[in-house]
């Protein structure tokens, strides 16, 4: 019963909250959209936290995404044992790096007086949830070997079933507790997304790569008299 709720209903609730929340916040209070960087207040410790955390989490998230979208690719890679070892080894190294980064970031929030005063309750909650996510993820990877292989047999079909609106929770109920926690916490993160600083992920300024350097705006479009 509980599992039906957690894997069959809660994901939809989380998705609705996330999408609705983002639209609501973007349309009513775009001013609050920011990475709310604290580098200006403290920048020595930040480097050791922010850089490994961000680069690590981007790669790990991409890895998960590839597993869901292109499971065949992962399967093909894992077909040769050496490649499986390399894939798993890299993933583990990246996740340890991002764990270190996250711990540095949390410590910095606590010990730097200037950063502490700019920390909101939501920042605290978010850091805790993220830490929980990272720890359960890494423990799953260590205790249940070759996650990249069984991920595409369990999480991939499950997530696909969620997105096709016919959730098949059997894939999840069969998993060990650690992985279940990791999955549920993921949906918690989705639900927190619109109300936390996570929204800055939606502002990744890729358009900058193609933009001319200068931005000039006309108050009224000029009327060129030919």
């Amino acid at each position: 019963m509980l599992e039906t709720f957690l894997f069959g209903v809660f994901p939809y609730a989380a998705l609705v909250i996330m999408i609705g929340g983002v639209i609501w916040r973007y349309t009513t209070n775009q001013f609050s959209y920011s990475s709310v960087s604290s580098q200006f207040l403290e920048n020595r410790q930040l480097f050791w936290g922010s850089a490994p955390w961000h680069y690590g989490i981007i790669l790990i998230l991409l890895g998960h995404l590839v597993g869901v979208l292109f499971p065949d690719t992962i399967q093909a890679i894992n077909g040769v044992p050496v490649r499986l070892y390399i894939l798993e080894g890299t993933a583990l190294a990246m996740s340890l790096a991002l764990l270190v980064g996250l711990v540095v970031l949390i410590t910095r929030r606590v010990i730097s007086p200037r950063v502490r005063v700019t920390t909101s309750v939501m920042d605290g909650v978010l850091l805790f949830v993220l830490l929980f996510q990272v720890v359960t993820g890494i423990m799953t990877a260590i205790f249940y070997r070759w996650g990249s292989a069984w991920f595409i047999q369990t999480a991939t079909p499950y997530l696909r079933s969620v997105f096709t609106l016919s959730p098949n929770i059997e894939y999840m109920t069969a998993l060990p507790l650690l992985s279940k926690l990791h999955a549920i916490n993921f949906f918690v993160l989705l639900a927190l997304f619109p109300f936390s600083r996570l929204v800055h992920m939606l502002s990744v300024p890729l358009a900058y790569l193609w933009r001319p350097y200068q931005v000039v705006m006309w108050y009224r479009r000029r009327q060129i008299q030919q």
Binding site: S203, P205, A207, Y208, R211, Y213, Q214, V215, V216, M217, W218, Y219, R222
Partner: peptide, 19 residues
Amino acid sequence: LNPGCVAVCPSGAIYKRAE
């Protein structure tokens, strides 16, 4: 006329008013 601040803003949030 060739502002450095505008050129490096990834969000395109800084702009020069043309008028």
